[in-house]
Write a protein that binds this DNA or RNA. Structure first.
Lengths: 223, 223
DNA sequence: GCAGTGTATATTGTATACAAATGCCCAAGG
DNA sequence: CCTTGGGCATTTGTATACAATATACACTGC
């Protein structure tokens, strides 16, 4: 999107995720506009986007507040993501062609290179990971599915999860991608779906273990 | 939402669904504002909402167009709805309590009353149907799931489907609700999920049969 | 004749002023 | 002391003016 609107979106989002705006805090448009250095118009856009992501909730009279994000909410998001992205993997397997398979292999190879060193390049891992999942979603051929998943894939959550991964966990993630590639190569939709669901559910538990008992505020701080 | 914003939303939406704005037509904010009798601000809001529902698409430079809605797109939406609403039914069964069960029974009884006469009250059926599904969604206890499904449940599609139903199809729909109630009474999540998925898939085929070979434009005209 | 470029025009993005609505506080009455 | 009502302050909704950007098209040079 455009400059001011993006700035408002990124600004408010980071204020929420960093805990600077705690759960339940009132989000006045005027105040946010001033803090982000833009006018109310792009702030209103940003609030709508954040509301769609459930990071912001509105009361019955259209006033905005920071939504509270319990571990249960995160679990909820991961569960839906496992289901939808599993479905995407199934469809992708059924529609797979050799060129796409090759792209996925290249992508997973890049992930391997990123995590091979003693000190893994987590940024590189995340980039490869994002591309890998994006290709699958694209291959699934459902615009609606992509659009639904877009609101579910909270990058900060993924970021924090990956940074808590040890080298072995990163390798396991890479290994699961390999298994997905095998399922894709055989065009086995059910297999792909199962592997993807497991892949995402494991990621959730890695997240939960690292953040056990922490509030949303603490979770954000711990990042 | 507020008056002007809703008017813009309803106006543009009806222009699209009625075929007055055909698939691919450019949606200039100024022109829409004039046609709806509001300013550009609420039009922009409305376009964002319609974009989230995939009724409007934007090109890479933020210009809006009427999305083309093939039968394949409708099938896509129904498939995702079957999966997500099936999941909601499973969760609802696991969380069911007697008071909610009673509310659902009352709701399905109202549907029965609406379709009993020789000339069924389709409006009454739709109202009861909507409430029935809403209660299940609420009982599933996942805000994210509700939020995802909100964009999938295109009321005009449901409306057209129901109006193509004969009296027997309406009764079958009522009967499937009864079976859902049985699954809920036993707290059998897997049963509830299967019945719900079947319920929605059958609705899709009723829709597809009635609209076979028609374009989005023709489909809208036929309503 | 064609590609590339610059300018005119149309369209979207942002800021701001004003209108409508909501929430808050305090005071008066029970 | 609690409730309730009015009025002021705050907040959101809408309109409009202006800025930034994209598109269309004619013109230039090859």
């Amino acid at each position: 999107m455009s400059r001011a609107s993006d700035r408002a979106y990124a600004g408010i989002r980071s204020m929420i995720l960093s805990g600077e705006l705690p759960a339940g805090a009132a989000l006045g448009e005027e105040a946010l506009a001033e803090r982000c250095g833009v006018s109310r118009t792009p702030v209103r856009d940003a609030l709508r986007r954040l509301e769609a992501e459930l990071l912001v909730k509105r009361n019955e009279t259209q006033r905005s507040f920071v939504a509270d994000w319990s571990l249960g909410d995160v679990a909820d998001a991961f569960e839906l993501r496992a289901m939808l992205e599993g479905h995407a993997a199934r469809r992708a397997a059924e529609r797979m062609d050799d060129a796409t398979l090759q792209r996925l292999r290249v992508c997973n190879q890049a992930i391997f290179e990123a995590i091979r060193p003693e000190q893994p390049d987590v940024g590189g891992f995340l980039e490869g990971n994002r591309d890998f999942h994006a290709i699958i979603l694209e291959t699934s051929g459902s615009r609606r599915l992509s659009s639904l998943l877009a609101t579910l894939i909270e990058q900060p959550v993924i970021w924090r999860t990956a940074h808590h991964y040890g080298r072995d966990a990163l390798r396991r993630s890479h290994g699961e991608h390999d298994e997905l590639l095998a399922a894709f190569a055989r065009r086995d939709g059910a297999w792909a779906e199962a592997v993807m669901a497991a892949h995402i559910r494991r990621a959730f538990h890695a997240y939960a273990d690292a953040h056990q008992g922490l509030t949303a505020f603490d979770m954000a701080r711990s990042a």
